[in-house]
Every structure is written in C-alpha cells, then in structure tokens.
Nucleic acid binder design. Sequence first.
DNA 1: CGCAGAGTTGATACCAGTCAACAAAAGTGG
DNA 2: CCACTTTTGTTGACTGGTATCAACTCTGCG
Lengths: 253, 253
Amino acid sequence: MAEPNVLDLNRLRRGCAHCSLQQLCLPAGIGADELQRLDDIVRRRRPVTAGDRLFRIGDPLTAVYVARDGAFKTVTITEEGEEQVLGFHLPGELIGLDALAADQHRCEAIALTTANVCEVPFDQLSSVAAQVPGLQQQLLRVIGQSVGRDQDHMAVLQRRQAGERIAAFLHGLSERFRHLGQSGTQFRLPMSREDIARYLGLALETVSRGFTRLQEDGVIAVTGRRVEILDMAELNRLAHAPETDEPRRRGRA
Amino acid sequence: MAEPNVLDLNRLRRGCAHCSLQQLCLPAGIGADELQRLDDIVRRRRPVTAGDRLFRIGDPLTAVYVARDGAFKTVTITEEGEEQVLGFHLPGELIGLDALAADQHRCEAIALTTANVCEVPFDQLSSVAAQVPGLQQQLLRVIGQSVGRDQDHMAVLQRRQAGERIAAFLHGLSERFRHLGQSGTQFRLPMSREDIARYLGLALETVSRGFTRLQEDGVIAVTGRRVEILDMAELNRLAHAPETDEPRRRGRA
DNA sequence: CGCAGAGTTGATACCAGTCAACAAAAGTGG
DNA sequence: CCACTTTTGTTGACTGGTATCAACTCTGCG
C-alpha cells in the first residue's frame, strides 16, 4: 500500500491464462482456445477500494464477479436498517449468484480491502457456457462451491455456543486461505469484529471475548486483525464440541 | 394413506406437460417440443415413504430430484453423530445441488411424508440444458431460488431471539405453501418439532414453547402438526422485530 | 389396554446480550 | 510531526433468554 502501483495496468492486462487463480476460478480445466473465448468476455476493472460496492440491492443481474485479490462481504439490510452479513468472499469465489433467481440482486457486495476484480457479463457467460461443455461444467461446479460455503455457514449458525461458532469461523477461514496458497496459520482478518458478529449472529462484544478466550487458552494469538493459529487441532475440536471445560491449558500443548 | 392408490400409475405416467408444477419446476418457460426433450430424460419413480432416502452422504452425483408432492429434509451428521437439518424441500424445489461442487453429496435427503419424486439424471440434464437455452436459463434460475432459500435461512439463523426465528420459519413456510397454490394460512407441518429445532438451531422445548406463545398471543392456532395462522401481519412483524413485549393481546385482533 | 413416540410444561443454571467505560489504533488537520 | 478526533476493539457488571433435566400428557397403534 505504498506507491500507486504503476505496473498494475500490466497485471490487469494479463488474462485468465496467467492468473494465479486459474486453477480455482472459472477457467479451471478447460482447454487453451476455449480459455480464450472466456478471456474475451472477462472485463478487468481498475482496483476498487474498501467500502466500494460491486452492486446494490435491487440492481439487475448484469455480471458476476471474482476477486483476484482482496476480500468482499455480501450483506442485506434488515427491516430495522441494520446490516446482516451473508458471506465473505476471498479471491476465486464467485460473487453475485444471489441474483440468479430473479435477475435482481438481493444483497450488496462491499469491498473490505482494496481489490482487483474480474467482471464477467452474465449473458455472455451463459451463452459461452452453452457452447463450451467444460465451462458449463465448471460454472456449475463453482456455483456448487458457493452453495457448499453457504451450507457450511448455516451449520455454523446452528451451533448454539458462541465459542463453537467463533472457532468454526476461524477454522473455515484458515482453510480457505490455505486453499489459496496463502498461510493457513497466520493471516490478517479483512473484516471488522462487527462484521464477524453480524456474520455469526452474535454481539460484537461476544466475538471479542471469544477471541480473547481462545488466546488465553493458547489456541490462537491475536493482535487486532492479525491472527496466528497455534493449535489447529484444538481449534477444530472446539468448532465441533461444546467446550468441555478442560482445565485451561497454559504454556505449551 | 388409506387405499394403495391404484390410479397412481396413471398419474406417474403423465409427463411434465401435465404436471401441476410445470410453471414452478424445470420446464417453466420452455417450448413444447423442447419440453419433450426434457420429459424424455425425467424418470418418475414409485412413491417413497416417510424415512426413505434419495441419497446419502458420499453418494456420487447421479441425479437431481424434485418432489411432485410430499416433503423432504436434507441433513448432515455432525461429528457427535447428531442430525443437523439444512433445509426442507417442498414440491418443485430442487434437491441434490449440494453435490455440484465435488460430484459427491454432502448431505442426505430424507422423505418426511410419502411422496412422488421426479429423478433427473444429471449428465443428461446438463447436456440438454446446453442445447436448449431456455432450459439452461431455467436451471440456473431454479438453482438461484435454492441459493435464495439458503440465504433466507441464514438470515433467520442470525436472528438472536428464538421467537423471531420461529415466527420467520412459519411465515416463510406459509409463503412457500401459498406459492404452490395451497393454503398459506392453514396447513399441516410435514416435520417434527425436533426437525424444526435442528433446523433453527434451537432446543426442541424452545420450539414447542414458541408455538405455545404464538398461540397464547392469538397469532396462530396449533394442534400438534396442524397450524392455522390467524394474524399474518403480526406473524411477519414478530419475525423481524425483537418482540416488544406488547400487552399480550387477548381475544380478537 | 398398554406402549412408544411426539409434544407440552415446569424448575433451574448459565451463557450471551446489553449498557457502559475504557484502551488502542487509525485518520485528520494544523 | 504532533495534537485532536473518530473508529475499532477490549473489558466489566448485570440481566434475561434459552438450554437442560425432568415429569407429565396426548396421540396413534399393535
């Protein structure tokens, strides 16, 4: 975040073929010349900054989006005017599928950090997908991954204990970072405590206390948004078991 | 559930063109001869009975399913071996999309009642969808509806008060029944209190108490699984507001 | 008739939401 | 670069809602 990245234009010009996400994103598993057809319709936009919106509630479905880096959240607004966080989106994860049913977005997508985004015009995507079997298959697969993340989230929200939800959240995030080739044990949270709280259906104070508790128990180390996972197995255990109040492990494992 | 329905075979032989769900299901909005192509691949199975499974966790993705009548639940099994209810599925709602990502089911689909089911072999569906633009579009739309229901569910689970979740659950179910052309104010719940509890992330006693409370407040009338909604506006209000303990309305609205 | 499963109701303990004060970090402008 | 403000995160005290354990009722069924 120092200089204005004068070389970014070059990076933006590079197509799917050179993208580090190629194997995770829409192009995964399709041939070279078919890749070109996809590449032709993908628009790469200049970087967005934190707080920018890709689309708003009620907007027509014009495109789906994939972050190349950075992170997004999707939110709805409740009757009382407060945000509910539906999901967090890391690079390679499709954003905008919520408009599939009604051609109209039910939520809005907000950048949590500065980010580079690929925009894929939806009608062109579906017509190319109809002609390129591999792309259709991959599109369905990526949609399926999105459904899977939603179901994981539901499973987390069904957990009754705040500690379980928080542990599950951190564990899931860790896996997603690792899947991107980044460290799964040391990372910076792109979202605020409040975002996490609204995502997990908890009060933000409860999230804060949960982090503190995990730190006291030697499972993680937190400073603000920097998180290091010290005991992944224990974190995973806490995410699934209702916290058998084990005699508070001190020092080492 | 009296006589074994000797005429059912005739009903089963009828294709999509005569199905009451035509406008809600995959065939919606596609032409007559294209409908025939879809009809050719759809397999109609003999009725399943309550407790039967369409697929189990780990099964390969061979088909997606749509109930013509009856109801299903999809569940996962937690590490501790207890069921988590991911969703309830009414007629016309696609079942089996959870396997899209990994070609393998993450959950199992269990019949809550006796039901007639259409089975759509998945590979044939995608190849026909590639050739029939209207079907591809409709497939994506139906998938989108499923995503939308999941997001509604997440929004319900993020509500902190049990009463809100229960009211939202009943209200949502009512809308889905109405959408099917059935009564939205009087219906029989296809699922047990325990299923509802595992769906809403509550203890089953809390669900029971919630129903009782709604009845005391004159919002609904319950006897076992029979529900009548007396004050839809109030039910909807309770689903969104954290229960401003209004002076317990008695008698009429 | 008695039994099993489903649902209701009651008493109690505890977790988490709320209100409030404080601490730390990140902007902002001189 | 430093004072100021604003935002974000932490911690504490208190209360209330919900889980839990338990007893009881109701329904349908063999």
